[in-house]
Nucleic acid binder design. Structure first.
Length: 472
RNA sequence: GGUCCCAUGGAGUAGUGGUUAGCUCGCCUCCCUCUCACGGAGGUCGCACGGGUUCGAAUCCCGUUGGGACUACCA
């Protein structure tokens, strides 16, 4: 009963996610949020979570989710890195209403969406500050005169606070080489793109007063700010590029399901508050709101992700799993280029009940597609005793009397039980040698189903070979 | 060092003055059972500390401690 409920939740969560048109906020202004990553080579899990919260908020409010590429740091950014982000967003099911798309096209009329192409715009803003005496040149760079008065910094998640700027140094907004600095371009773009809500990592919380100062200088309306907590390593340090689990691409590579990763990310800093962990993205969209996001940092827990993935994995249909499984198995050299699809799907369907991650597939499925599989040494020693081999021989005789139509799980079970009773043994005395003989392994799918999938000819041949190899 | 943020078991969280502090992962035990996984029944483990406020604090205030972020002509 309980189990059934979970299953349904998982199955629901696996379905495609149509965009929900939620309600506009109370001010009736159309929400516009942006995700503004810097393409530096990988799509970081923390960035993915920030993107997710932005996307969720946009979908919840019926607003727009803008993707803006912050590629002003020429030394670090490379064009091909943009695709890493695009593919990562696509994999996680986050579609941008404006900005570059995975197919190479660009959506939206507030572009360009690459900061490297917005130089003229930034120049205009800097010139204006200069002309109004709000900025000045110093050592070739241009600095913004930061007012030294206290400033209020409101935040939808962290709460409002006041910053004393008495000792705040003037802010460099343009480098000696003429290129604009992050704080400037970030603010200018948010103004130009009519961003209403800035949802970003808490690492920007301490910078926000600078942004507010700039916005005020430009005479623009400030967006609402919402700083979300960081994702920390299990040891409490800030998760950086080199840490395990940091790269979204790795999850795909290891055979995680995108719905599972996304589901897990939703739970870092946000909760449906009804004691559920696995829930469909539509429900998250319906419930998600900024004030309910937690303020404290969250530790990344691969263990829990693994569990959630297992929930999704078992609930997934063979059709959904097949492409992923084929890719992993062929990459691992386990599945041949050409294979029998029906046989493959049958094998996959009995294996998927036992594992939680695509990465486990090669180890679990190798013997389906090759006859020269290895035998577990310890299991051979334990199971293929003279007695065990004797049972195997008796089983071989019995199975040989079964024609192919009787080679199904139900009939096989009956045969095993009948033979076990006949020789005064528990059925396990037959099952363990049989499993080892046909798979080389001591663990695997339900044996009766395994035999059915392998088929009569393969099973008899493998038992013969095992007997030959391990007798005497 | 300065500024800012945070603080419920090992991890993620529910809880916003009165609960035997709930749930999930993990871990342990037992059950189910052909192995494994699933599933079922239990168990382990927590309000960082110290002061207040209050008839009464996990919940409010202050301090301490701890963790984190920012403090660049990186983003």
């Amino acid at each position: 009963m309980e189990r059934k409920r979970w299953r349904r939740a998982v199955e629901d969560a696996t379905e495609s996610c149509p965009i929900h048109h939620g309600h506009l906020n109370s001010e009736m202004e159309s929400v516009r949020v942006r995700f503004a990553p810097s393409p530096t080579g990988m799509f970081h899990i923390g960035s993915a979570r920030t993107a997710l919260f932005n996307w969720l908020y946009a979908r919840h409010t019926g607003g727009a989710f803008i993707l803006r590429i912050e590629d002003t740091d020429a030394a670090r950014n490379k064009p091909e890195y943009v695709d890493v982000i695009l593919q990562g967003l696509k994999w996680l099911g986050m579609d941008a209403d404006e900005g570059p798309q995975p197919d190479g096209s660009i959506k939206g009329d507030k572009g360009p969406y690459f900061q490297s192409q917005r130089g003229e715009i930034y120049k205009k803003y800097v010139d204006r500050l200069l002309a109004e005496g709000k900025a000045y040149e110093s050592d070739g760079a241009i600095r913004f005169r930061v007012p030294k008065t206290p400033i209020d910094v409101p935040d939808l998640i962290c709460g409002d606070r006041q910053i004393d700027r008495a000792n705040e140094p003037d802010l460099v907004i343009q480098r000696k080489d003429g290129s604009p600095v992050f704080h400037l371009v970030n603010v200018v773009d948010d103004i130009e793109m009519n961003v209403t809500h800035v949802i970003r990592g808490e690492d920007h919380l301490s910078n926000t007063h600078k942004h507010l100062a700039l916005i005020e200088a430009f005479g623009a309306k400030a967006p609402h700010y919402a700083h979300i907590p960081l994702i920390l390593n299990p040891n409490g340090s800030k998760m950086s590029k080199r840490d395990v689990g940091a790269s979204i691409a790795d999850y795909k590579e290891q055979g995680y399901l995108h719905e599972a990763v996304r589901n897990y990310l939703c739970l870092l800093g946000w909760s449906p508050k009804d004691n559920r962990e696995v829930l469909p993205i539509e429900e998250v969209i319906a419930k998600f709101d900024l004030p309910q996001v937690n303020r404290s940092n969250a530790h990344f827990d691969l263990n829990k992700l693994f569990w959630i993935n297992g929930e999704y994995f078992r609930a997934a249909s063979i059709e959904a799993l097949e492409p992923l499984a084929v890719e992993i198995l062929q990459k691992g050299g386990v599945l041949p280029e050409s294979y029998d699809p029906a046989y493959f799907r049958a094998a996959l369907s009995i294996v998927k009940e036992k594992i939680k991650l695509g990465r486990e597939l090669p180890e679990w499925m190798g013997y389906f597609f090759r006859e020269d599989f290895e035998f577990e040494e310890a299991a051979v020693k334990k199971v293929f005793t003279p007695e065990g081999l004797g049972h195997l021989a008796q089983l071989r005789v019995r199975l040989a009397t079964l024609d192919a139509t009787k080679f199904n799980a139900a009939d096989l079970e009956a045969e095993f039980k009948a033979l076990a009773a006949a020789i005064g043994q528990k059925v396990g005395a037959l099952i363990h040698p049989a499993r080892l003989a046909v798979s080389g392994r001591s663990v695997g799918p339900s044996l009766y189903h395994l035999l059915e999938v392998l088929g009569r000819e393969r099973v008899l041949a493998r038992i013969d070979r095992a007997e030959q190899k391990f007798s005497k």
